[in-house]
Design a protein around this nucleic acid. Structure first.
Lengths: 190, 190
DNA sequence: ATTATAATGGACAGTGTGTTGGATTACAAC
DNA sequence: GTTGTAATCCAACACACTGTCCATTATAAT
């Protein structure tokens, strides 16, 4: 897919830094994490950090974009039928992806991260939300998408933080119901 | 309501600092705002800042809590009938409150703030969301509340950032529809 | 093996941090 | 008004972090 060959050293440096940041964010807010502490934790020279990133926020952004890319590629690998309209099957798969990387997402969606993740996912969700009834004007359509995406993310966030007590399949069903039928749509749920 | 008499000097200091932070957040991310710059902008001595707050994040949190308190008092001042179930009337009033303080909320809900506002509002929303069908288990109930509150906030956020093209009444109607009927509930909207 | 380039380590000036002590000033209570 | 209290200001402090150098070393690509 991408022709650029990446130097192994660069790759290692970036992986170490990313892992270190994910770890540190578990313990303290991103705003309190200094470049110094981050590099110490990663075992990377501070000069090297600046060769790749501007500051810890920049690194965090890159990490998130990478994940968005992964999920996006996965979604695109699915058949059109599975994408439109948003099926419980596809949603279940995505939730399983979250489940398989709990630690990562708990860190990235937790208290100590920042809020930009939702905005990124919003763009991603455009792909799978184009089936929304096109009878509305663009502004209203945007409200609907915003409502659904942001609400869903925060439910997933909640689900992750509290130990994933429900199965991905059940969560997917719940989300679909909420998205299309709202609270009233839930009255006839399992 | 509150018996504590606050020193005029303290009040002035806090107001100046809060105004300054709200202004600065319009231009740059909270993480880049130093105590120094904040105090310069407020015309307050840096030592004085530390008498009241730990850092700019702390100040931001206080500002938000204050607003939450205001809205909460307003909601509680309404009759029980108007509160349960969530009426378009009450929601319209709240949206008007947002509209009356556009600049403030644009700043506090914008890109350069942080995400904690939603969590605060979540607590607030517990008050007006207790009418949700209690037939569900607590966990599911929590998901429903989370979905609705977070989705609503982000729609309001969107509405503010893009110039409040729709009236508070229409937004209230839209939100009610989304909350109770989801996307399907919107098919029969104005 | 040679070449290119990434990472390291050390240093630098500049800036922000959080705290201190004392002088000054404004407030509230009487 | 007078007085005691307390908030603000001001200067200074040691310390940490920042962002950017450059010379050196290590390692990947060919």
């Amino acid at each position: 897919m991408k022709g650029e060959k990446v130097d192994q050293r660069v790759k290692l440096t970036q992986v170490l830094l990313k892992n270190a940041l994910v770890q540190l964010i578990k313990e303290q807010h991103i705003s309190k994490i200094s470049v110094r502490a981050l590099c110490d934790a990663a075992g990377i020279n501070r000069s090297t950090f600046y060769n790749h990133y501007a500051d810890p926020y920049d690194l965090l952004m890159k990490i998130k974009q990478e994940i968005i890319g992964d999920i996006g590629r996965y979604i695109n690998s699915q058949s059109i039928n599975a994408k439109l309209p948003l099926s419980a099957q596809l949603l279940t798969r995505i939730l399983e992806y979250f489940q398989d990387n709990v630690e990562l997402f708990r860190s990235l969606l937790g208290e100590n991260s920042d809020s930009s993740f939702q905005k990124d996912i919003m763009e991603l969700a455009q792909v799978i939300s184009e089936h929304v009834n096109p009878g509305f004007d663009p502004r209203t359509l945007n409200y609907i998408k915003t409502f659904g995406v942001t609400g869903s993310i925060s439910v997933i966030q909640c689900w992750l933080q509290e130990g994933m007590a429900d199965s991905p399949a059940r969560m997917a069903e719940l989300l679909i119901q909420l998205l299309y039928g709202g609270q009233n749509g839930l009255r006839n749920m399992s």
